[in-house]
Simulated scan of single mutants.
Amino acid sequence: MDDTSANKSKKWKPLHCLQLQLAGLPTNLKQNPQSIKFVAASTDVPILEMARAVISDIKESERGVSTFDAKRGEKVTVIHCIAVCVCDFNMMAEATNHMGANTKKFCPRCYADKETCISKGMVRQSEDTRRILNHLSINNSRELRQAHGLKPSENPFWDIIDPHRDIPVGILHWLYLGLGKHILKACMLELSEPKQEQLDVLIESH
């Protein structure tokens, strides 16, 4: 699941894309274009609306699909499910009802905030998120949204996976803008006061 640019200019216009791949493929075949199945793409349809149709088909086929195994030469019933959902930071935020990198609780996986962004926060639990989203559907409180970094919206992923758990972390996709200043701040806090003064002298000397 991804949102790529549909414009040649700098103006952002996302092209939402959905693709599928068999989870059991050998590693050397995963990057093979023939192993990636295109499902849908649109610049106008929201990504969760596109995902809803796909997830509906997957749920319907969980009861089993009758087909023929050419290698064994016999009829078989195929039962499948979603193992993981691969996406970047923005798409994971959509899949978890998260408000994105600009909110104080900026991480869709834990409760890290911008004051302590280098440290991992309490891990988000599916049950807790569902409960908070249920409260927000009744009373869309700004304070509650900001406290948890969540937004109420119809999300089909909760019916088929645990979005907090079943979306792997792609480190390069999680480096949001301004990370350097947070790393510098974290390093400075680890230094004793004499070491900070010594560093100031070294910087000024150059």
Rank of each mutant, 00 (worst) to 15 (best):
M91P: 01
M91H: 07
F106P: 01
K75A: 15
I118W: 10
S192I: 00
S119W: 01
M188C: 09
S141M: 08
E190V: 04
Q31V: 01
E74Q: 14
V84R: 13
L202M: 14
S205R: 12
K104L: 06
K13N: 14
H206L: 13
K185Q: 15
G24D: 13
E154G: 04
K11D: 13
V84A: 12
L15P: 02
W174L: 06
A41S: 11
Q19W: 04
L29D: 06
D162F: 05
Y176Q: 14
P46R: 03
K59D: 02
V86P: 00
A101P: 01
S61G: 11
R142H: 10
L184Y: 12
V65M: 08
S126M: 12
S42M: 04
E204H: 10
S192H: 03
T67C: 15
G180N: 14
A51C: 11
F89I: 01
A51L: 11
P108R: 08
H206S: 08
G178C: 02
N7M: 11
K11Y: 15
P33L: 09
E197W: 01
P14L: 00
R63F: 01
H164A: 12
E193F: 06
K105W: 02
L25K: 11
T43W: 00
R130F: 01
Q34I: 03
M50I: 07
A40D: 15
E74A: 09
V39K: 07
P168M: 12
M50S: 14
V45P: 02
H135I: 02
S35W: 07
L18R: 07
K13F: 09
G170M: 12
S66E: 12
A51G: 09
L15R: 06
G149V: 02
I47Q: 09
K8C: 07
D200L: 11
L172D: 10
C107H: 02
H98C: 02
A83V: 05
I36W: 05
T4R: 06
I167L: 12
T4N: 01
L20C: 15
F106H: 05
C87N: 03
L175E: 13
S35P: 03
R142Q: 15
L177Y: 02
P156V: 04
A147N: 09
R142N: 11
L175T: 09
H80M: 08
L144F: 02
A112S: 15
Q125K: 15
K75L: 06
L136Q: 08
D2I: 02
K75M: 10
S5V: 03
F89N: 03
S119T: 00
Q31Y: 11
L20V: 13
I82C: 01
G121N: 02
N7G: 05
D113L: 03
I203N: 04
T77G: 00
A83E: 07
D57C: 14
K11S: 14
C85D: 01
I183L: 13
I183F: 13
P194L: 08
C117G: 03
M122H: 03
H80D: 02
K114V: 04
G149A: 07
D44E: 13
